[in-house]
Design a protein around this nucleic acid. Structure first.
Length: 494
RNA sequence: GGGCCCAUAGCUCAGCCCGGUAGAGCAGGCGGCUCUUAACCGCAAGAUCAGGGGUUCGAAUCCCCUUGGGCCCGCCA
């Protein structure tokens, strides 16, 4: 592939810049005040009959040229802006000579231009702006992707996301919807009187989950530091400190492979709610996902999965017991009483490759993943997991050997993980020690200060965590996490 | 980490199986056209066929390696 800088297309455009300057036109001016969105002009046109031109003051619009259709002494330009698109109608009898010919000689697809004129509807019925004055706002030197087929190259779409965005209204709509769903999540927690907080990304112990951290070094601390892999432990310290409803929405980092549902940095929400238990949190999540589903349906009516989301996420969601669901799906009995070795052999028989040393909870997760997860298409709360599956949840008040936990699944994806949070400091210390004994690699350490904090008393509380990227994927039926992250990680160019 | 697949003009794609001087559409250039909307008509141009090596009289095409990407599996509670 030849260097863009060298191509004849670029040289043509550089010559056009020289011509613009020679006729006194600045190719990169500073602003374009008093413009309206193209949608405003389109709305104004709705009152006009075909062939009619609006009276009243001229309107100004700005945007990027998608296509040009020249007809000798008139021309049509399709102009895109964030609100949509508008056809510009250029005519020699409006622009005059030599202005008309000069402009047509120097305009290209991809250029950012401003236009001033009257709203009008063409005889063929197309809402348009009859242009009296054109302004170059930024001359594009590099040609844009092809106007009809758009940008297909998956690599370019990831490496040069701006090209994907400028060529694809669908991509723009998807990322806009993501941003507005994030805003909706904040509204939801804010309305429920949760306080949004920010906790450190860099710390000396990355805890709250089992994942490989990114490791770096702090010159100030003169110590190894790790990027957070979860938000859990600092947020619970805030419950100790007296905040009763807190949440954080932020980036977390796990030094692991990128695939369709995992990215090494992703956005997570965790919320902690004092004096409530996991059943209260279950109802909160039901309400939240119901609301987010209605929002994506508004934002992406043309995306089938999004349009169907409100029906799918209509509360109440199904509730199934972890052990009962696993036993009924697999035909096995007495799952909770099996030894670690038995569970390991069962997991392997189900096709999982797991190391000998894994804790029993790992094998149970694998069995669940294999037998039950694929069947959970409608939103379903899986509740009351075996004790071994998490070190941070409180023991179940009535089911021996279980914890008070739920996971929400939908369309085969995990959409939330919540507990009645463990607040017994001695039990917490024991459970951390058991996890460490089963793991024991160099970058893992017990967060002793967290155990110390619990000794001062953390109120009974429920807590939840969910990945924003995956939530948005499930709500919109998007199959790859790269399609919901604006700038996914890419290797440096060879 | 394992398997399969892909890389040809700025963009979207043919050509590859079965080796014989690299093609189209869009975009760009020149000419024509005052209601088109994937505008249209004519002319001329545009390529280190991802990179490197090999086989061959001859390689975009067959073989090997490298790089980047995609899908699946494994890993990632």
């Amino acid at each position: 592939m030849s260097d863009v800088e060298e191509s004849h297309l670029v040289q043509e455009r550089r010559q056009k810049i020289e011509r613009l300057r020679m006729r006194g036109v600045e190719p990169y001016p500073w602003s374009f005040p008093d413009r309206v969105a193209t949608s405003v002009v389109v709305d104004r046109c709705a009152a006009l009959t075909p062939g009619a031109t609006a009276s009243g003051p001229d309107l100004r619009v700005a945007g990027r040229i998608r296509t040009l259709r020249q007809h000798g002494r008139s021309a049509f330009v399709d102009l895109d802006d964030q609100s949509g698109a508008l056809q510009l109608f250029l005519r020699v009898d409006e622009l005059g000579e030599p202005s008309y010919s000069d402009w047509l000689a120097d305009l290209d697809p991809g250029d950012l231009v401003g236009a001033e004129g009257s709203p009008m509807v063409t005889r063929r019925g197309e809402p348009s702006l009859l242009v009296r004055q054109l302004t170059m706002l930024a001359k594009a030197i590099a040609p844009p992707p092809e106007k009809f087929h758009g940008l297909k190259d998956a690599e370019v779409r990831l490496r040069q996301r701006y090209l994907d965005l400028l060529a694809s209204p669908e991509t723009r709509a998807r990322f806009r919807a993501r941003s507005l769903v994030v805003r909706e999540i904040r509204h939801f927690f804010d309305e429920h009187e949760f306080l949004e907080v920010e906790t450190p990304v860099l710390g000396t112990v990355a805890g709250g989950a089992a994942a490989d951290p990114f490791v770096t070094r702090s010159g100030y601390l003169d110590e190894e530091v790790q990027l957070r892999i979860s938000l859990e432990l600092p947020l619970k310290r805030l419950l100790v400190g007296g905040f009763e409803r807190v949440y954080e929405l932020g980036r977390i980092f796990r030094n692991e492979d990128l695939d369709a549902t995992h990215a090494p940095e992703f956005t997570m929400v965790e919320a902690y709610w004092a004096y409530t238990d996991y059943t209260d949190m279950r109802h909160l999540m039901e309400a939240m996902y119901g609301r987010l589903a209605r929002r994506v349906a508004e934002l992406l009516p043309g995306v089938p999965a999004a349009a169907e989301a409100p029906g799918l996420f209509e509360p109440p969601f199904a509730v199934v017991d972890f052990v009962e669901a696993l036993e009924s799906a697999s035909g096995m009995r007495g799952i909770a009483d099996r030894s670690r070795e038995e569970l390991r052999d069962l997991a392997r028989a189900a096709g999982a490759t797991v190391p000998d040393a894994s804790p029993a909870g790992k094998f149970l997760d694998k069995l669940f993943e294999h037998y039950v997860e694929p069947t959970l298409v409608r939103p379903t709360f899986v509740v009351d997991h075996p004790l071994a599956t998490s070190p941070l949840a409180k023991r179940h008040r009535s089911k021996p050997g279980r914890i008070e936990r739920f996971e929400l699944y939908c369309r085969g994806v995990e959409l939330a993980n919540a507990y009645s949070e463990l607040n017994d400091p001695d039990d917490q210390e024991r459970r951390f020690a058991e996890q460490l004994a089963a793991r024991g690699t160099e970058h893992y350490a017990m967060d002793r200060d967290f155990v110390e904090a619990l000794r001062y008393g953390m109120p009974p509380a429920s807590g939840v965590g969910f990945g924003v990227d995956r939530a948005f994927m499930a709500l919109t039926g998007t199959s790859s996490i790269k399609d919901v992250i604006l700038f996914p990680p890419v290797r440096s160019r060879p």
